[in-house]
């Protein structure tokens, strides 16, 4: 039997209408453009919430496949992105629940990448700072890591965070506040530790 892949190519009634284009299931070109825009951010998110780079590699592939297979229609780019991160969040939680998490092994930047961060930041301080952050993040709960990363690393709005992690918008503010306070406390502790 010939396998049918659920990739629909529908003709746009209004050419150039980006809103309509976003509402269509993905063709190859759309997918590749979307992937190029989101893959690095998604990998960063997964590697930081799981604390495992290798697991993040696997989860990125799985996330895109699930997203593709769902064939969902999205109103706009933001909605599409939120759906992708929502799938990633659920996969990350499942993986950690299964005990696949092997501990924090957030890689420290090499000299080149560290220098690329900012010319005014001292490399050693950056590396040390990232090591401290990795340790502090590891002490948060997975859902707290999700919240702080989405809010402060990716700059997601409270509404986007609520969509991605599956909580009410009203709860995001207080949950985020608690997670941030905890992380700040851990960071202070890590930095004061010789």
């Amino acid at each position: 039997m010939a396998a049918t892949v659920a990739m629909h190519e529908t003709t746009l009634t209004a050419a150039g209408d980006t809103a309509a284009a976003a509402a269509l299931p993905m063709d190859e070109e759309t997918f590749r453009a979307f992937y190029d825009r989101t893959a690095r951010g998604l990998w960063s998110y997964l590697s930081r919430i799981t604390g495992d780079r290798q697991l993040a590699d696997d989860l990125v592939q799985e996330t895109y496949y699930r997203f593709f297979r769902a064939g969902a229609v999205h109103a706009d780019e933001n909605h599409r992105r939120n759906s992708l991160f929502q799938i990633a969040t659920n996969l990350g939680r499942d993986a950690m629940r299964r005990g696949r998490r092997r501990g924090t092994d957030v890689a420290l930047p090499d000299e080149e990448s560290a220098a690329a961060l900012t010319v005014t930041t001292d490399i050693a301080a950056t590396i040390a700072g990232r090591a401290d952050l990795a340790k502090a993040m590891a002490r948060l709960t997975p859902s707290q890591r999700e919240l702080v990363w989405l809010a402060y690393a990716q700059g997601a709005s409270h509404q986007d965070i609520a969509d991605i992690v599956g909580v009410k918008v009203g709860s995001v503010k207080s949950l985020l506040f608690r997670a941030r306070r905890k992380l700040a406390g851990f960071l202070g502790g890590e930095r004061s530790t010789p």
Binding site: E28, F31, R32, A33, Y35, D36, A39, R40, G41, W43, S44, S47, R48, R53, D57, V60, Q61, Y64, V106, A107, P109, S113, A114, A116, L117, T118, T121, T126, G129, R130, D132, L133, A134, V148, W149, Y152, A153, Q154, R180, L183, A184, L187
Partner: peptide
């Protein structure tokens, strides 16, 4: 918190070992 995460985010984006989109497709 935000400064530490912003620096780490930039580094993670730079380091992310993602395969090419064509291969993933």
């Amino acid at each position: 918190v935000a400064s530490a995460l912003a620096v780490d985010h930039q580094a993670a984006l730079h380091d992310a070992p993602v395969p090419p989109s064509g291969l993933v497709w």
